[in-house]
Design a protein around this nucleic acid. Structure first.
Ligand code: SF4
Ligand code: SF4
Lengths: 135, 135
DNA sequence: CCTATTATAGATAATGTGTGTCTATAATAG
DNA sequence: CTATTATAGACACACATTATCTATAATAGG
């Protein structure tokens, strides 16, 4: 029961891209500079965000990454699922008995958890982060 | 982001012990017989439940496991935390910046998730399971 | 064009965790 | 005393995560 280190990198990158959105593209080397992660490893994670449609990439000189068109709508859930794939939290159960009370109970809690993450917009977090020192 | 297979075994065992609570102790070999798991492996998981105080063990002939005294209060959260340890879902963050907005947001959702699991009593699940075919 | 820059993709390795087995020990009932 | 049962430790295995290295493709600018 955890969120991976990769997800942590992705969330920080999304927060940074949102805060510096007006400045155009940002290269992976600059994005990695804000965290303790290599450029090659971070680039693999960012490619997942690109394929999920959360950010846009431009190769070549002066290229890099920027947020997608309607970036204001992106939520924590979008980023988490882009990196980790679709859940499920209750890993072992392969849905082979829909009437099972254990499965039902955990999936109910899981659903609420994901829905709450789906209401948390990166743009809102960035707005709050402007007012607070960050490391 | 997942719950382990061991947790699955633990939940099924707790459900079974609750359903057959009137019958006294049950040996690990019988409990393992209801699932596809070896006795030695399941016994390690059950020992965690014993140390967490959720069940009681008696060694020796005619020994086995039974639920603790006020077994009606045990929740899904109790079982999960007994097996997996205390969370955290957001693994990488070691609490080193309480003002971080990412940490705050995820911990808020996590707190609600755990609280919901804390309201789900095994005894209630067992009561519902009596009315439904189970595999 | 040519070159520097940048993203992408593949192969590969290191690490850690979950899963599982085997064996030995301790405790209890009869 | 013996059979039964829980507990504990050592160990092995599979798998996912993390990470590095290298090669390739695409773009900007001269
Ligand atoms: S018994 Fe229930 S929880 Fe276990 S695998 Fe089947 S459906 Fe899932
Ligand atoms: S920056 Fe925030 S989320 Fe990342 S490790 Fe620090 S406190 Fe945790």
């Amino acid at each position: 029961m955890k969120l991976s280190k990769s997800t942590h990198y992705a969330l920080h990158t999304m927060l940074h891209l949102t805060l510096s959105h007006a400045e155009g593209h940002t290269s992976v080397s600059k994005l990695a500079g804000h965290q303790q992660v290599s450029t090659t490893y971070l680039s693999k994670i960012l490619t997942k965000l690109v394929k999920a449609g959360l950010i846009v990439s431009v190769p070549g000189a002066n290229g890099g990454y920027k947020l997608k068109a309607n970036w204001q709508e992106t939520t924590l859930l979008d980023v988490i699922q882009a990196v980790e794939g679709l859940p499920p939290i209750f890993d072992y159960c392969e849905d082979h008995n829909p009437s099972c009370i254990i499965q039902q109970s955990i999936q109910k809690a899981e659903k609420n958890f994901l829905e709450e993450l789906g209401t948390m917009k990166i743009a809102d977090l960035a707005e709050e982060a402007r007012n607070v020192p960050h490391h």
